[in-house]
Design a protein around this nucleic acid. Sequence first.
RNA 1: GAGCCAUUAGCUCAGUCGGUAGAGCACCUGACUUUUAAUCAGGGUGUCGCAGGUUCGAUUCCUGCAUGGCUCACCA
Length: 487
Amino acid sequence: MEQDRLNELMKARRQKMVQLKEKGVEPFGSKYVCSHYSAEVIGQFDALENKEVSLAGRLTGIRTHGKATFADLQDYKGKIQIYFRLDQLGEEKYNLIDLFDIGDFIAVKGPVFKTRKGEITVAVHDYRFLTKALRPLPEKWHGLKDVELRYRQRYLDLIVNEEVRQTFINRSKIIQTMRDVLNEWGFLEMETPIMQTIAGGALARPFITYHNALDMKLYLRIATELHLKRLLVGGLDKVYEIGRIFRNEGISPFHNPEFTSVEIYQSYADYEDMMSITENLIYECARRVLGKSEISYQGETFDLTPPWPRETMINVVHKYCGVDFAKISDDAGAREAAREAGLELEGESTWGEILNLFFETYCEEQLCQPVFILGYPIDVSPLSKRMDSDPRLTYRFEGFIAGKEVANAFTELNDPIDQRERFERQLARRQAGDEEAHMMDEDFLTALEYGMPPAGGLGIGIDRVVMILTDSPSIRDVILFPTLKPR
RNA sequence: GAGCCAUUAGCUCAGUCGGUAGAGCACCUGACUUUUAAUCAGGGUGUCGCAGGUUCGAUUCCUGCAUGGCUCACCA
């Protein structure tokens, strides 16, 4: 494509590709079976010294010295030096090195040795050319810094920036650990629809798509909640789903339109059990993947060892704002408190909404150390069970680390009459223009009417957990291909 | 959606109080059989994000646009 746009560097590489072909070397080769990865050769040097190994990888540096050449070979597990000699390879094979570029893939075979300066090196007795790189790699010292290029061409970021590769390897391990641990605890992984006729289970604006054959609108899911609860009705007592969620909302260092959540549901359990699952699951991820439970995030250190402290929302708001909602009895009193605190209210805000607003505005970001905040108002919790001791609150908590919400869980509302009333209240807000209010889900209500056992449910934002465990300041650092506008 | 900032070589960046641009790495030519940011000698390879405007002249000043970043808004 775009021949005329090829610059000098790319022209030179294409020319080398043609020259390789002319000399009978296929520039885009085939299968090669290696004996080791670079890191294994380095790690097992004592056993492998003077033994022949075969490796494949990408050339990331070439240092020629006339009749000898050193190069760096980068593979999946690291990087190792390789050493070509004219007298070892013969003129024909040695001279082909002139046609190698940084970025090319080659396979090498030969004995392992240590150079004078002590670097473990593979003496190349034979090699095979595997793939020509027609474009130059970003520079080796400074790496690739341009964030836009890093996101759009993540493969370059992965090649050149070692920490980035490690972050995504850790992301994979963290998710695998969640699966392992949940399976060990007897949970079953489920898959529920991503395209739904009603987007429920959270308060968020959905993406809309369209099915041609059925001639109808479909929504991309904003949560997995309501389908997983149907599975509890069906008698699958301990289930979870790890999957992509889509929310048609703003983008920020902590929000990407598509992100990954794990939701976990357990019959005959309650939100106390969900707290235990949350703290133990995240603790296990840290311990098994990072090998430690004390971690530092953006300069702040904290310990993930369970149990995490518990605090009620009312107490936290009292502590940070000096406003005691336990002593405010009605909506009017709450509005008065909001006015005094300079909070802007839209419409007829209720006691619960205002309590939540105080919490989100003044308290959330202060919660550096891992903590569970309990007792969310019923007005902002349409799917959680009402507290026996205070009908304005629910058995719901959120888990915070570094001031960011990482978990949201509750004792599930399993009373279909109450649930219908909550949906109706949401519907009223929807009709008043709140696009994030819940839709009426008759099918879900029908399921509840068949009887859902008492249960606890939990959702964890996996991207946020990965951010914290990999000390990443932006969600884009833990999503391989974050959402961007097209160029 | 709003404000601020950025966009110059393949990469990382400098620069021009307005006279079409430079460094390191990379790349090209040559020397070199234990180098490793190899070294030595030589060579700038560019639509200065895009489109207008002001001007004798714009990469530079102005306006608009695009993309990105940060902050805010939004956001269980």
